[in-house]
Amino acid sequence: MTERPNPLLIANTIDEALDAVSRGSTPIAGGTDLVVGARQGNKRLPASLVAIDRVEELQSIGLDSDGSLSIGSGVTHATLMSSTVVVTNYTALADAAALIGSPATRNVGTIGGNVMNGSPAMDTGAPLAVFDAMIQLSTVAGNRQITTSELWVAPGQTSAEPDELCTAIIIAPQPDRSGSAYVRLEYRRSMEIAVVGAAAVVTLGLDGTIAGCRIALTAVAPTIVLVDGLESLIGQAIGEATLATVADLASSQAAPISDLRASEQYRSHSVGVMAKRAVLAAARRATGESISVPVNRSIGVGSDGQRQWEAGAS
């Protein structure tokens, strides 16, 4: 009889977790992807697991000495959406976390799990991409940091090595007068998966025109798409023409598939709408206006503030 690895190690420290991963154990945090996948027969549960949900070092949100935000990979969506620093400075990420699944999913699901699952429909992906987040991958030998576009290589596939564990997500400080937002198309007001989505971070100049803008798109390509060609917006005021340009750029750079959630044409069209709204909400937040998290529910369709999309654009 061959020797079996420990089927489940409950790690209390990063070192314990890394050691188990180095010996072939698969990390599990909330289990929402792994266990559901196994139940549906998509993928068998790995024979050896290391539970990392009790590693306190992975559960903190803090500022590094250079002012960067460091989010432990074990931080849950529920924590992210209510963290003051995230809501204040990286609001798009809070918008996204607040939209994931149900309260229960948000309680156990972690940002690390979301990021390492590599789904093009992941809600936290586009916000991390627009913030130029670095993903910290660790082994028993040490750490390395890579960009999100280096990490996500194909649907459900990352460039991480089997012995690497995602331990943190690091985001540099955003310039003054910046705001961000994540908006997604959803058919119900909750329990949705992104049909398409868009995150934007907008920095305004002192004159109120656009000084910087980054947009990323969810569920319109094999991985999260960063929109190119936004330089033309620099110096422009936020208005209907600017937003129309944003929508066109986003729609034209989307390369979606048709599936049971939406057709290619509808996705291409609606991702432009999402991009436009994300930019508008981000710009309003950049002026210091408070739009509560998630922006989908505070000014999305079905909320009392829905008309603000139009009001803000004119």
């Binding site: 959803e186 058919y187 609606s270 999305g300 369709v301 829905q306």
Partner: peptide, 13 residues
Amino acid sequence: VRLDSETGVVRVL
């Protein structure tokens, strides 16, 4: 009902 005329999303109020 309320219609989001850009996406076709409808909510029943």
